[in-house]
Design a protein around this nucleic acid. Structure first.
Lengths: 190, 190
DNA sequence: CGACACATGTAACACGTTACATGATTTG
DNA sequence: CAAATCATGTAACGTGTTACATGTGTCG
């Protein structure tokens, strides 16, 4: 969903073509999430199919220009108006990993937490370095970096919290199967 | 990737069947991310295709049981050993939205930020309520809730930071196209 | 000329969601 | 019996990734 609307947003500034859209998208987000050029074209095709963009006939200069339609502008406005909710976000792989490490026996949860903490600390340092080096650069991707910094910091705080919880529950609550009660079933097979 | 490995983790505890796997997955994560039953079966099929699980012939009681293979155990161990990196995460839609709201003209960025802040505050309250009501429940999904709380708090801090940045740059740096230099191309069309 | 960036696509695949079909079992 | 729950699938679709094919323009 992000790319679809991202391209729409860039097209609101005027007709653009595929390569240009990738360039501007990466300029705006600091190439934090490199955008595959192939996907730009497939996404444009789908946007055109859905009537949110159309091929701009005039002024191509040899390139395939696209322009946003009224339906596209409406859709884009809706995107900017609607907040990103928790539910709309993808599953958090780290949370799932730790939850399951706790749920199944034979996993050294502390080791998992510590390795993750190390890794997150390292990327936090890397991000801080990036931020420093990119000072007075674009404001938009400055904010993107800071978004990741805030996220990484929260993650470290959470990991510390997890370790504290682990220590507190060491022995108090062992494994605790909690295993989804398997319903009995009386020999039903033919 | 999370679900695939999640199912593997649950299967390490012993042979299970589809419905049971969904139940245990949701028990471990507090049904925070409801797991579609259809996907459990397709994922199991793929895991079997890749040799990470196999159908457990014996003791089915009328259900299709699956068990983890050695290759599956290896893969699972690798999952727990490898930290979740920033790069492996999906694009952050909120960051992209704000970055593009800044990059293209005609978007009321402050309004976007304020709406988002309102929404995030609300889900933060909801999460806090959930946490309180679920006290002394399962430790694993207690941690999942707290993961989301920490994330929401970080998001609010970031949004505040964004507003401060916006105020500071009001007028200083207007729009700043920064628009991916379009290469000239001399009338190349036939 | 040859290498490289620009430019546009297509194909195959992985993952996820929704919806549908089909039965067996349990329970009011 | 009827409805709900348990249980296993399949089909269609959306989105994203990787890789490949193909051609033009620029520059050393």
């Amino acid at each position: 969903m992000s790319i679809k609307h991202g391209l729409l947003a860039l097209l609101q500034d005027g007709p653009k073509y595929g390569y240009q859209l990738r360039g501007e998208f990466e300029a705006a987000t600091g190439a934090t999430w490199p955008l595959n050029i192939g996907q730009v074209y497939t996404t444009l095709t789908r946007l055109e199919r859905d009537g949110l963009v159309r091929a701009a006939s005039h002024e191509g200069d040899g390139r395939s220009m696209y322009e946003i339609t009224d339906a596209g502008r409406t859709e884009l406005a809706k995107w900017f108006e609607t907040p990103v909710t928790r539910e709309s976000r993808p599953r958090d792989e780290l949370a799932i990993k730790l939850a399951l490490a706790l749920a199944v026996p034979g996993v050294d949860v502390s080791a998992v937490v510590q390795r993750q903490r190390m890794s997150t600390m390292q990327s936090l340092q890397e991000l801080t370095r990036l931020k420093r080096n990119s000072a007075q650069g674009e404001i938009s991707w400055q904010l993107v970096i800071e978004s990741m910094i805030f996220g990484a910091e929260a993650e470290i705080r959470w990991l510390d919290h997890c370790e504290a919880m682990l220590l507190r529950h060491r022995g108090t609550q062992r494994a605790e199967p909690q295993n989804y009660q398997v319903p009995d079933q009386q020999e039903a097979r033919s």
